[in-house]
Amino acid sequence: MKVLICENSIDGIFSGVYRAYASRYGHNNIRLTTSDALESFELFCEYEEVPVDPECSRKVADTLRARLGQEVYYDICQAISAGETEKEQRKNMNKAEAVYKTVVLGLSMGQGFNVLNCLGNPYVARVFQLARSAGNEAHHLLGFLRFSELENGTLFSRIHPRNNVLPILAEHFVDRLPMENFIIYDENRKTAALHRKGSGYLLAAVPQADEEFMNRFSEKEQEYRQLWLEFFHSIAIEARKNPKLQRQNIPKRFWPDTVELK
């Protein structure tokens, strides 16, 4: 058995998939794993690290889009962007392996765009599960994310997501707020999405964030926060008070980043 170790990113895993095909060992004799996986080395296995190669990654992405369709490609990317806790990693199949075998199955099928419907297949089921968990969090954050207006009029938001959902969020808010300058800062991954009025967005690594800059709010900011708090409290019906249901609907981990529940 040959084991390819690839980086835990879209480019990394796609490079791994490319290498697995190119090596011609046969799909049954080869296995992918991510470099941060918690597995111990096995006897009678040959390990090889696959470097990230943007060119290979692009080729795989093009093939997936052409043969499996845009939707499947999108779901696979979402699955790769899912973040897992150690416990989940131990319990479940490795992400890279699931993606690799799903791609192999999809490309061997007559109608590749159907591949994610084959939920009877354990690899597909795993990709489906990962994509769903990342997609759910992204959808939550579309609502739970809060912008604050900084002194210079820029909207700033700080989030702590489990999955790497920044691209999905940025896409949504560029469409929604085209004439605003905004920054969404993922503090867990130290990356930010930056958007300038009337243009697209870009993702940037922010190893050292300027805390002071992020806390200089505009004059009006406090006023609207107060108005929002007022609204938030008066809209609740006392006779139906139900903190458990509230916690179930907006899980506690999202609370610190909101205005009304922090």
Binding site: I235, A236, K241, N242, L245, Q246, I250, E260, L261
Partner: peptide, 13 residues
Amino acid sequence: ICHTFSADGRCIS
């Protein structure tokens, strides 16, 4: 999109 949930657990959108 639900933006938050009030003390009675109902969605505020």
